[in-house]
């Protein structure tokens, strides 16, 4: 049907794409720890060692856990299985709220205590007008 050259070119493309896709897959897979933007509290619990490097921990801000005294904000990040206590001094983004997503950047003190140097709010995929949200909350 097709000439020999055409078949060879198809084969070349298949081999090329397969090679690169496999390489990318294995590189990303072995670098998984670096590809993820943050760890969940459950992943922090099973860390083999507590490194001194800066890491990020993310999850939900636990309900009724935000505690502000002086410049310190203390709150709990939860993934609904495990919790981690976070302390932070500084400005937080507007969307930092209880029951909303958060990513804290900082240093792990132990498996239950995280000292944040930067707080990012994580927005979820829900978009709705304010009236509708009120209805849902009621």
């Amino acid at each position: 049907m097709y000439g020999k050259k055409v078949k060879l070119r198809i084969l070349f493309l298949i081999v090329l794409v397969l090679t690169i896709a496999l390489t990318v897959f294995f590189v990303l897979n072995s670098l998984k720890e670096n590809v993820v933007y943050f760890l969940s509290p459950s992943e922090v619990k099973i860390l083999s060692e507590i490194k001194k490097d800066k890491i990020r921990v993310g999850g939900m801000v636990k309900k009724n856990s935000i505690n502000i005294n002086n410049d310190q904000i203390i709150f709990v990040i939860t993934d609904f299985k495990n919790d981690i206590n976070v302390s932070y001094a500084g400005l937080v983004p507007n969307l930092f709220q209880e029951n909303k997503g958060v990513v804290a950047e900082g240093f792990l003190q132990d498996r239950n205590y995280f000292k944040a140097v930067k707080i990012l709010a994580k927005h979820d995929e829900n978009y709705m007008p304010p009236e509708l949200n009120k209805k849902i909350e009621e």
Binding site: Y37, V103, E125, Y127, L132
Partner: peptide, 30 residues
Amino acid sequence: LIKFSVDWWSTLHQPSSIKILSESTIHESM
């Protein structure tokens, strides 16, 4: 990789609101 990055890894970027197989999480007016 771009399409599924938000499902495969934890990212700061939110996952898609518009899904083909299940109901979208974005209000009609938007």
